[in-house]
Design a binder for these strands. Structure first.
Lengths: 199, 199
DNA sequence: CAGGACGACTAACGATGTTAGATAGTTCGA
DNA sequence: TCGAACTATCTAACATCGTTAGTCGTCCTG
């Protein structure tokens, strides 16, 4: 009976190269925008020829998909690390604020995760599940703040996304829109709560 | 002394061909999405070879730019035609509702006008001025409803865009998000007004 | 040690936007 | 009226892109 190797060095190496490709892709996306990402540049950055990338990814979209999953994992990690105040309302503000901070700190990442910017790209179900997990986290905090009606939740989410989008598009690096987050959260949550008690 | 021609038939013909190109572009954008637009398809649709398009437009981006201007003119026309109720608040709701209706009735057009979807495309100053004119119209109606603070205006605009974006992305053809427009308008306008009177 | 999986390569394809250059047809001034 | 200039189209070609096919050495394994 042969001794089972405790590590699969080949798989480790393969995974390491995959990670290297993704890292190069992220760097290039940061440098020259998400749309200007080319397989040739990625390959060049890690000392490869473009076709070799196909050993690790099925297509360019597969790379985008891996980046999408990657970004959402970063988001989940960030949101998990947020220290939430006891007060549910304050917790909600902190949570959504962290979300916005995450989105704004890396435009290319936000472009991939929150805007539909790559023509023809749709996240795979597995990757999209990560995005839904992040949304589910938000819904949980929203619920703890007393907002449970789906319509009210939709409003909160859309409003947050609207602020984030306007901020990214029109005033990146500033706070012209983000500064209104807390006020709008109060407004919507108050209205949702009083509305629900009235039946 | 020569008789001045009352019409420049050549210029008319040229302008007609330009319009024909744009119409073909719109049709293709509707059929196969804004991103899937190719000069070859446009040329084929009007019985031309791709390079001939360059006699009428400097580049593919120039075609996008003309479409952007075109779409914004449609928007301005639509908004101008809206019959506004006397009541300023109702007028605002009607106005923003018309805006949303316009955006949702043709996804490809909305994609071009309101989302940043074409990599590397930025509207020319002249075309962008049209977009700003549309926004100025909204600001006017918002002001007549009693909202004059820039922050409050930003909130209203971002909220409307957020609803529209969510609606287009997640439930095209439905009203899951748009149905909240009037309620949110009331909410924001009320808050803006009471806030301003408090100094 | 032999065979197969791994991991890279070169060559090439089809599609894209775009440029260069030739060529008809049209207009207009000398 | 004739030739020059402009208009409007074409063909040929290029660079770039994502992608596929086929090849070759290397490493692990049975």
């Amino acid at each position: 009976m042969t001794v089972q190797p405790t590590r699969d060095r080949r798989a480790e190496r393969r995974e390491a190269t995959r990670a290297e490709i993704l890292q190069a892709a992220w760097e290039l996306a940061r440098e020259q925008g998400l749309g200007g990402l080319s397989l040739r540049d990625i390959a060049a950055k890690i000392g490869m020829r473009p076709p070799s990338l196909y050993w690790y990814f099925d297509s360019k979209h597969a790379i985008y998909d891996a980046m999408f999953a990657d970004g959402n994992r970063q988001l989940l990690e960030r949101l998990d690390a947020v220290k939430l105040p006891r007060d549910p309302r304050a917790a909600l503000k902190r949570y959504l604020g962290a979300f916005m901070g995450f989105a704004l700190e890396e435009p290319a990442r936000a472009e991939l995760l929150f805007q539909r910017h790559i023509p023809g790209f749709t996240p795979s179900p597995e990757s999209y599940a990560l995005a839904e997990a992040a949304l589910a986290g938000a819904v949980k905090v929203i619920g703890e703040a007393g907002v449970t009606d789906q319509g009210d939740i939709d409003c909160l989410v859309a409003m947050t996304a609207g602020l984030m989008d306007a901020q990214m598009s029109n005033d990146p690096g500033g706070n012209r829109w983000t500064r209104h987050l807390n006020r709008l959260v109060d407004l919507l949550v108050d209205d949702a709560i009083t509305g629900s008690t009235h039946g």
